[in-house]
């Protein structure tokens, strides 16, 4: 009895969420001859363990949006929500599929994707460089931080008219709108990345005779990479938010433009198709960034 108990205690699949002590009798009073013992048993094996948990996670990740679609469909069919305003998944699919098959959607995606990527790069590259520099050089930080802090909270939508005046109605204004949104997030995160490097690593670099340049290359930049990537991921999210704003005016194509155009025409199904496309696009770009992150930061703990 004791031995089997011990073996089961070792069983790693016993989930921690359930204390084995609570749901077991703490002593078998009055059980015949032998002395009473407090029995501590491992919870029964629920099977699967780590693998089971991951499979569960994957299933739920698929189930929860599907369930939402089913509920949406049913509510619309029962008339609980106004189909003219909210449409329903089957109708949206009926619009989305032909759009996809004709290649029209893909051409809009290509236009938007180009703007997102250019804007992202235009914002992220100076954001990383300036952020790192501000983290490394206190005088630069002292000079620029007040400017960053005061201009960061200005809503990007509020400066859209200004952007249009300065950059015109072409691509430049759209790329800039996205770029400026990405820029701040990447800058602030990169700077914080440098500033939050453990001081002990500075001591190590110093004791081993690292020059300033060595210090930047072997400690400051690699040490701040995790934060830089956090900024890039946030920036990518913002880029997708801003594409819709950037394509609101003075655009002839793009997924964001599709949303506004469909709204003008009151083509709800088309609008939802564009929104859905944006959601999928955002999801795929996030996966892309995470894949790059795993390659660039192999030391990052999961």
């Amino acid at each position: 009895m004791n031995d089997t108990n011990r073996e089961r205690q070792k069983n790693p699949s016993g989930l921690r969420s359930q204390s084995p002590r609570e749901d077991r009798p703490r002593g078998d009073a009055g059980a015949g001859g032998g002395r009473d013992a407090i029995v501590i048993e491992a919870p029964p094996d629920k099977g699967g363990g780590n693998w089971g948990r991951r499979a569960f996670g994957r299933t739920v990740a698929f189930l929860s949006p599907s369930l939402l679609l089913v509920v949406w469909e049913l509510l619309a069919r029962w008339g609980a929500i106004d189909e003219r305003l909210f449409s329903r998944p089957s109708l949206i699919l009926g619009t989305l599929l032909p759009l996809l098959r004709s290649g029209e959607l893909l051409s809009h995606i290509a236009v938007s994707l180009q703007r997102i990527v250019l804007g992202f790069l235009a914002g992220a590259a100076p954001g990383v460089i300036l952020g790192l520099s501000m983290g490394l050089f206190p005088p630069l930080r002292a000079w620029l931080m007040p400017l960053v802090s005061s201009t960061f909270p200005i809503p990007k939508l509020a400066i859209m008219p200004l952007i249009l005046i300065v950059f015109g109605l072409g691509e430049a204004s759209k790329v800039f709108t996205i770029g400026i949104g990405v820029f701040y997030l990447v800058l602030i995160n990169s700077m914080t990345g440098v500033l939050s490097i453990e001081p002990i690593y500075l001591d190590v670099a110093k004791t081993f005779g690292a020059s300033k340049k060595d210090f930047y290359l072997t400690v400051a930049i690699p040490g701040s990479l995790p934060m830089i990537f956090a900024g890039l991921k946030l920036g990518m999210g913002t880029a997708l938010l801003l594409i819709v704003a950037a394509e609101m005016s003075a655009a002839q194509a793009g997924v964001g433009w599709m949303v506004w155009r469909a709204y003008d025409m009151f083509d709800i199904e088309r609008m939802f198709s564009a929104l859905l496309t944006l959601a999928v696009l955002g999801y795929l770009l996030a996966i892309l960034l995470e894949t790059i992150e795993r390659k660039v930061i192999p030391w990052k703990e999961k």
């Binding site: 190590v204 005779g209 072997t218 040490g223 990479l225």
Partner: peptide
């Protein structure tokens, strides 16, 4: 305290002083 650079492999950590 733990002062090994997390972003370098064990080899690169051990060779750090030499590299500098």
């Amino acid at each position: 305290t733990d002062s090994v650079f997390p972003w370098m492999t064990v080899e690169d950590n051990v060779g750090y002083g030499l590299k500098m």
